[in-house]
């Protein structure tokens, strides 16, 4: 009887140690930075630390099921905090795309130009939805070096998902970040020089 009980325990432990094919996936948003020399004559954009709404301050990716329901994934997480990931994605994209604008993180916030602007970004939505879309929403504010507000605007960018799965959704979210970065870049470059 005792022998039977010991064998049962070992069998159970063995079953518990059985491997499964479920594992955690990590996603990153930003592309690698472009190797470029900072030109002093370019317009400078300092991106302040991105502010996230509270439910986005978690490593797990979210899936919007309905207007008032969010699903938190278990095995799909961001490789870095989302606020830093979004800010870095914007900086790298702007520096990669624009010849007139040079963007920096707050880390390099020495504004040594007469045309220097600051971007404050507040993100309220950043997830794929059950309706086969990705959403990127929030508001941003542009101010000059004298803390005078140049522009303040709400945004709600949406794109359709063509494929299943989170990797495709993260790609789409990254494109929405690029789209917002382009909008901001165009807004800054049309401001007349002071």
């Amino acid at each position: 009887m005792i022998r039977f009980f010991i064998l049962l325990v070992i069998a159970l432990l063995g079953a518990g140690c059985q491997s499964t094919d479920t594992y955690t996936k990590y996603y990153q948003l930003a592309d690698a930075p472009v190797q470029r020399q900072v030109e002093q004559r370019q317009i400078q954009l300092i991106i302040e630390p991105v502010v996230l709404v509270d439910f986005l301050k978690r490593p797990n990716l979210l899936l919007k099921q309905a207007d008032n329901t969010l699903y938190v994934t278990n095995y799909h997480v961001w490789a870095e905090p989302l606020d830093k990931a979004i800010g870095r994605a914007m900086v790298n994209f702007i520096n990669q795309q624009s010849d007139k604008l040079r963007s920096e993180h707050r880390l390099f916030d020495q504004c040594n130009k007469t045309q220097c602007y600051r971007l404050t970004l507040f993100v309220e939505g950043f997830y794929p939805t059950k309706q086969s879309q990705v959403e990127f929403s929030g508001k941003y504010r542009l101010s000059n070096n004298d803390n005078e507000v140049i522009a303040q605007q709400d945004f709600n960018l949406v794109d359709d998902l063509e494929l299943d799965g989170y990797p495709h959704a993260v790609d789409k979210l990254q494109k929405l970040i690029h789209q917002l970065s382009s909008q901001i870049e165009q807004k800054i470059t049309v401001i007349p020089a002071q």
Binding site: G16, L63, Y75, H76, E162
Partner: peptide
């Protein structure tokens, strides 16, 4: 979180690993 959802997942296989997936328009 897994332990919170299913405390015996340490011993038994957890089915919570199957996250809901976003679907593409084509599907």
């Amino acid at each position: 979180k897994e332990l919170n959802n299913k405390p015996n997942s340490l011993i038994f296989e957890s089915k919570a690993g199957l996250d809901q997936q976003p679907k593409g328009k084509s599907n």
